[in-house]
Simulated assay, not measured.
Amino acid sequence: MRRAILTGYLDTYRRRRRWAGIRHLSARPDHVAGTEDGVGDRADVTAALAALTPTQRACVVLRFYSDLTVPQVAAELGCAEGTVKRHLHDANATLRGRLGVLDDDPPGRRAAAHLTASPAPTEGSAR
Rank of each mutant, 00 (worst) to 15 (best):
D37T: 06
A112H: 09
R2E: 13
A4L: 12
Q72T: 03
T83I: 03
D104L: 05
Y13V: 15
T122S: 15
T122R: 15
T12M: 12
D30F: 00
G97T: 04
D105Q: 11
P106Y: 02
Q56W: 02
A80K: 07
T122G: 14
L25N: 04
L62M: 06
A120E: 13
R2V: 09
A20G: 02
R28M: 05
S118P: 00
G8T: 05
A93G: 08
V45N: 01
L25Q: 09
A75L: 11
T83Q: 11
F64A: 07
T12C: 09
R17C: 04
G97H: 07
V101I: 10
R42G: 08
D41A: 14
Y65R: 11
G21L: 12
A27P: 00
A51T: 13
G82M: 04
A74R: 00
R127F: 08
R23Y: 02
D103N: 09
V61G: 00
L88Y: 03
L99Q: 03
V101K: 10
R109M: 10
R18Q: 06
I5T: 14
V32P: 00
E76L: 05
P121W: 03
L88R: 01
R28I: 02
S66K: 13
V45S: 02
T116I: 14
R86Y: 06
P106D: 05
R57M: 03
T35F: 05
R17L: 09
R63P: 00
T35A: 11
H87Q: 12
T122K: 13
G124M: 07
Y13Q: 12
P107W: 03
P119S: 08
R14K: 07
T116S: 13
D103F: 08
A91C: 06
M1D: 12
S125P: 04
L77A: 04
